[in-house]
Design a protein around this nucleic acid. Structure first.
Length: 582
RNA sequence: CGGGGUGUAGCGCAGUUUGGUAGCGCGACUGGUUUGGGACCAGUAGGUCGCGAGUUCAAAUCUCGCCGCCCCGACCA
């Protein structure tokens, strides 16, 4: 490729709306262009990178026995009605009708579609296990796309689905997928990518992992123990907090005028927030009150609370609902509150196990000292109260495995793997005939990778002040050849010859044939980010040489004789690839 | 959906307070001089100032309504 012909201008300044590193460089380098909110056109540079990423994914999927297929982006609503997701999923699912008023959707994931394939094509236990995958467009009508290619509405995804006759078979394959993902993310050049335990969310299933590229702009919060024994998404992360245990002291009411918050209360009484218990009220989607209690210094994790209460949506309760339950907002506790069908009480372990907490007295301007759950709640109520972990982990809290302080990191979710079980096969009649002649539902797994997001994540981890530093495995070009003083015939001739020779040797090379000033050419080369660079000028040509440098090495370079330079470059390329081999 | 911001040439911005018929830098094009970290000179093209209504002799500027986009939050496979 000659740079003079490459479509996609490099920009000196980024548009104001580009904030994150990857977004800025993707726009400045001419990799992609915005079309509308969360919609992008990939220009030649960007498309080439995603193509290389897709090739790596294909190799690894094929290596673990995957067979590639292609399902449609547009799907009939009836397929999604079979699984029940047509109704369950919110507005991210784009619904529309075709010319015959038939209800259709744009596929945001393809469990339903692949189940339709499996239930017609896979009929016998002899055909299982098997894995199908595709690399294809997904559409999700995101509430808030952001950060360039990190969160978009339309994107390319590799989604794979496996089908099994037993949980053991699923687990065996799941482990293979985990290894394949680890290889893929290493090969595309992510320097730090962790697989962490995650919440399986709406896709369902029991066990799932997310692959997180560690980056400050990441949307997910992750907790890890110092040596990696424990890694989890904040949504499900737990910690091993110590609770104060001491002899219960007598309950005692105290006047606490205007102490509506834990901070007010702690300050007024001269105690620490962890000696208090706070009450937070939510409304379950069916209208019942969820009365959640947690030690005063901790925050409630709504993801955990939703799961425990089996409520897909929870909202803060209004004062009227709280007062109906007999509690006084600002001075509330479970003291004297009876759990019922209308009032569900969830207590965090921190509130149930700590001794002598200060709690609300359910009277205006009054709190109660020395609350002890075990002593102060009648046995018949205890049975109806849910005691579970609803706390949000904080940085430095003790790791549940090692007890060491947990570290908090930000991550970009570049891939995920789920054990689905029979969540889709059962309702959709995806069965096979077993050796005993009986129809049984297939046990499924699903496995996704966001291709464009992975590209953006690589930039977040691999860049300097001048642009991306692409790993050679996915770089838009392996070698960037620059001719300086290009109007001089000998420079032009030498460049053209080397360009031809490199291409003949199978090297993916871009040739800056524009004859721009050095600084201009170097700046563009930095934005294009090819890992290897060759510069030819009258100065180097005087000694029959060219300059060679690695993109990451700043301005340092070495002089290489033009004789045998193609072999030298090929060795350098091989050495670069070796860095990412698995 | 809530909070904040913003909309003027392909990109970055000034002009809006105080109304007078649109400007700067980058980029593009032509010619010339240049050539080792985003050169210089001369010239050229490019804008119904987000859209619509209103006030006014006159609106980028004032008023009202709408829309787009960005950030934070909610949501999210």
């Amino acid at each position: 490729m000659k740079l003079s012909q490459l479509v996609g201008q490099r920009l000196k300044e980024a548009p104001r709306d580009a904030q994150t590193i990857s977004h800025i460089y993707l726009i400045r380098g001419g990799y992609c262009r915005p079309v509308s909110t969360g919609l992008f056109t990939l220009l030649p540079l960007g498309y080439k990178i995603t193509d290389k990423i897709k090739a790596i994914i294909r190799e690894e999927m094929n290596r673990i026995g995957g067979q590639e297929i292609l399902m449609p982006v547009v799907l009939p609503a009836e397929l999604w009605q079979e699984s029940g997701r047509y109704e369950k999923v919110g507005q991210e699912l784009l619904r529309f009708t075709d010319r015959n008023s038939k209800a259709m959707i744009l596929g945001m994931t393809h469990e339903e579609a692949v189940v339709q394939v499996a239930r017609t094509e896979l009929t016998s236990y002899k055909q299982l296990p098997t894995m199908l995958y595709q690399i294809q467009t997904k559409y999700r009508d995101e509430a808030r796309p952001r950060a360039g290619l990190i969160r978009v509405r339309e994107f390319t995804m590799k989604d794979a689905y496996s089908f099994h006759t037993s949980q053991a078979s699923l687990e065996e394959h799941y482990a293979k997928e985990h290894e394949a993902y680890t290889r893929i993310f290493k090969r595309i050049g992510l320097k730090r990518c962790l697989s962490i335990l995650s919440d399986s969310g709406m896709i369902g299933g029991a066990i799932s992992h997310e692959f997180m590229a560690i980056a400050d702009c990441g949307e997910d919060t992750i907790f890890v123990s110092p040596n990696g024994e424990y890694k989890a998404n904040r949504e499900i992360a737990t910690s091993r907090l110590n609770y104060v245990k001491e002899e219960p002291k007598p309950l005692q009411e105290v006047e606490t005028p205007n102490c509506k918050t834990i901070d007010d209360l702690a300050k007024f009484l001269g105690i620490k927030p962890e000696q208090t218990c706070k009450a937070v009220f939510y409304k379950h989607f069916d209208g019942t009150l969820i009365f959640a209690c947690i030690r005063g210094d901790l925050e409630i994790n709504e993801a955990k609370l939703k799961k425990i209460t089996q409520s897909p949506e929870i909202d803060f309760a209004n004062d009227a609902l709280i007062e109906d339950a007999g509690a006084v907002p600002g001075f509330a506790s479970i003291l004297g509150i009876k759990p019922s069908d209308k009032i569900r009480i969830v207590l965090d372990h921190s509130a149930a196990e700590s001794s002598n907490l200060v709690v609300g007295a359910n009277k205006k301007d009054v709190h109660c000292l020395n609350f002890n759950f075990d002593r102060d709640v009648p046995a018949e109520d205890k049975a109806k109260i849910i005691i579970d972990d609803i706390a949000t982990v904080r940085e430095g809290d003790p790791c549940p495995v090692t007890g060491q302080p947990l570290q908090m990191l930000k991550g970009i979710e570049v891939g995920n793997i789920f054990q689905l079980g029979t969540k889709y096969s059962e309702p959709m009649g995806c069965t096979y005939l077993d050796a005993d002649g009986k129809a049984k539902p297939m046990i499924m797994g699903c496995y996704g990778i966001g291709v464009g997001r992975a590209m953006a994540a690589v930039i977040e981890q691999c860049h300097d002040d001048h642009g991306p530093v692409w790993p050679i495995t996915i770089a838009p070009f392996e070698v960037h050849l620059i001719g300086l003083n290009h109007n001089q015939p000998e420079v032009q001739a030498a460049c053209q010859k080397l360009y031809d020779d490199l291409q003949a040797a199978g090297v993916d090379v871009i040739y800056d044939d524009r004859g721009e000033k050095a600084g201009f050419s170097f700046a563009d080369a930095d934005l294009i980010g090819a890992p290897l660079r060759i510069t030819i000028s009258p100065k180097t040509l005087a000694n029959n040489q060219a300059e060679f440098k690695h993109r990451e090495d700043g301005k340092n370079f070495q002089l290489i004789s033009l004789d045998g330079i193609v072999d030298f470059i090929k060795q350098q390329i091989q050495a670069e690839f070796d860095k990412y081999s698995v």
